[in-house]
Amino acid sequence: MKRIITAAGLSLAASPALAHHPLNGMPMETFAHGVLSGVGHPVLGFDHLFFVVAMGIAALFTGRKLLTPAAYIGAMLIGTALMYAGIAMPIAETVIVLSLIVLGGIVLSGKALNTTTAILIFATFGLFHGSAFGGSIGGQEGGVGGAVLLGYLIGLGVIQYVIAIGAGWVVTKLGASDATAINARLGGAMVAGVGVFLALEIVEGPIVALLAAA
């Protein structure tokens, strides 16, 4: 337990990368640009990356480690497409932070999810992560073409699925045979810690404003 608490504390030092762009801000104009941007956003955005890692670990112990992450991928792509079409999920960034705390906490607890619950949780949060991804292309001046959008969606889907499956594989290689394994729970502690850190950043502004007005 001491190792778990230590890992959670260390994770608070992680800096969020919420709006990085793999093309250094250059507009996406080709299919290849779309793929590169789709691959880069989940990797450079630590909020998305940590959630996918936790999802891969949680999925490992559902007994359907290949199916359950696919529910997230499908919902995430839908959320991205909806945002591109102008339909945004409400308070997406706040829900994304909540997703880290919730899923990280589940993994930290050492309790395995059943398949139905895992699909429901992964897909629900996937819509909000996708909405954030959609904002990256929806906000591009002049919009993006169909080829760029297709490449972006492919990049997003492939890289996140690979990361999720890879995270489960790594935990297995580290000796985690069930959800109570310390290595798996350490991963949950890290993700939950990052979520708490990002949540504090969200509330910091309003708190400072209230104190200044007092």
Rank of each mutant, 00 (worst) to 15 (best):
L10Q: 09
S15W: 14
S15P: 11
H20N: 11
H20A: 15
L23F: 09
L23V: 09
N24A: 15
M28C: 13
H33K: 11
G45P: 03
G45M: 04
F46T: 14
D47N: 07
H48W: 03
L49I: 05
V52W: 02
V53E: 04
G56Q: 01
A58Y: 01
G63W: 04
K65A: 13
T68K: 02
G74L: 03
G79Q: 00
A85R: 06
A85V: 06
A85E: 05
L103N: 02
G105W: 01
V107Y: 00
N114A: 11
I121D: 02
F125I: 07
G126T: 11
F133K: 03
G138R: 05
G138W: 11
G139L: 14
G142Y: 10
A147G: 12
A147E: 15
L150I: 15
L153F: 12
L153S: 09
G155P: 08
G157C: 10
I159K: 06
Q160D: 05
I163T: 10
I165L: 15
V170R: 03
T172Q: 12
S177Y: 05
A181L: 09
R185N: 09
G188T: 01
A189G: 07
G195E: 00
F197R: 15
L200E: 09
L200Y: 10
E201R: 11
G205E: 12
A213P: 07
A214T: 11
